[in-house]
Design a protein around this nucleic acid. Structure first.
Lengths: 242, 242
DNA sequence: CGATAGCTTGACTCACGTCAAGCCCGGTGG
DNA sequence: CCACCGGGCTTGACGTGAGTCAAGCTATCG
């Protein structure tokens, strides 16, 4: 029963109580599923999609490319995230979405979403809220990129992933998967591959975490959070009438 | 007549056509106005405001502080921006809002906003949209912070301000006000004051702009945009059904 | 058994930070 | 009227965190 609930319904329940009617309505939404391999493109920059996608399983990233071939990852998404809900109103993609590891994605047409949001203001607000939380995470990233050292930034990122995944019950024994190569980590942190490697080793040497085979184990969360000056409040992980 | 339209109604009209009814309804919203001096705090981090604020005149910034006294500015807002619409759903402020220069601000209670969004899905979508555009700008900032040099970043920022202000008719003869000190610019760009100063002089030496007494004049936009690899598409400045 | 993707390491470079001093200007008070 | 002060801007000398280049290592996959 519980396990049949769509992960994105669970995700909304993090923020507010849903009525049985609302749950039923969400569960009944017409979804088209598809799977992707690692590094595959899910939505292309510049596109004008007629549907939005949400992540059922795995990890995805938003990417922006620069003229010289470099790129920056502007967001990381986990199972349950409504990844490009933005395109419902933004119309034109200002960034691409790619599969971080292998992942399962569901698509909902904008028409179907429009119907829900027009007729159910509360659900509309919750959809809106998820994009606002994305924004809060982006602000935290901006602060990390602008004012924190590589070590602090990496520590902050790991804390963020840990706390977000834990809320979706995707952490077991302080351990979770995160299928990013060190090069991709560099694109998240705005660092070179080489420096990512060294920074990772600093954290390992400190004994606050282990990270191998795309698997991260937090050894001492308290210390890690202190290192990254991490405060989970910006993630808005509490239920309250919205 | 036209000049009596609230700047934030104008701002919404950038993105979609408003019906006369909608305009009337927005104009009738109960606003409480207040003025602020430069550097004054408008909303404090951690607060749970019962109202949202929008900028009628001047500039405002969102700020995040770090433990060691440093800070990062995560967004710059101009007249017409619905600055902390976020608090309507996010409840707790994950950042502060401060006056960048002297500015005039209007407050709307969340209750009033709720009434509008519940009864007018189209306006709700436009409000939502403004927060999504904020998000698009934040993504651009992330990419600038992570992958661009100081010069490219500054060029990009000036282009962004120029294009945003122009759309609100706040640019005259390629000239606009921007009341930020070089220290504050550093907090925007994630740079030290000293390096901001040198970077500014690079741009001046290139002859692409002049910047003095908080007044910026674009001399060669094309060149400046090329320097910063600036593409205005992410600002979503076109009218289309949303 | 090569080929390839990902990780690791060392040597060197450079963009940007830090420290420190001086300048300019407007405001304030004797 | 001048003396003083503080905020903002500018400049130079020097330090350093992170980038670049290059090589080798390891594991997986045909």
């Amino acid at each position: 029963m519980g396990s049949e609930i769509h992960p994105f319904v669970r995700a909304l329940q993090q923020y507010d109580v849903l009525t049985p009617d609302e749950i039923q309505l969400l569960e009944a939404l017409p979804l088209k599923e598809r799977s992707y391999q690692r590094s595959e493109e899910i939505v292309a920059e510049g596109e004008r999609p007629a549907q939005s996608c949400l992540l059922l399983e795995g990890f995805a990233a938003r990417t922006q490319f620069l003229e010289n071939g470099r790129r920056q990852i502007t967001a990381v998404h986990i199972a349950g995230d409504f990844v490009d809900l933005h395109s419902l109103l933004l119309k034109r993609m200002d960034h691409g979405v790619m599969a971080f590891g292998p992942c399962r994605v569901a698509f909902i047409t904008h028409a179907a979403l429009r119907q829900v949001t027009d007729q159910h203001p509360h659900l509309a607000r919750l959809f809106w809220l998820t994009t606002l939380v994305d924004g809060a995470i982006q602000r935290a990233w901006i602060t990390c990129l602008g004012r924190r050292s590589a070590t602090e930034h990496l520590a902050h990122l790991v804390c963020e992933l840990f706390v977000r995944l834990r809320a979706r019950e995707l952490v077991k024994h302080n351990t979770f998967k995160f299928p990013a190569t060190q090069a991709e980590l560099g694109d998240i942190l705005g660092l070179s591959l080489v420096h990512v490697n060294r920074t990772l080793q600093d954290l390992r040497r400190l004994g606050v975490l282990t990270w191998q085979d795309n698997t991260i184990t937090i050894r001492r969360f308290r210390e890690l959070a202190e290192l990254g000056n991490f405060d989970p409040a910006f993630l808005n992980q509490w239920s309250e009438p919205r």
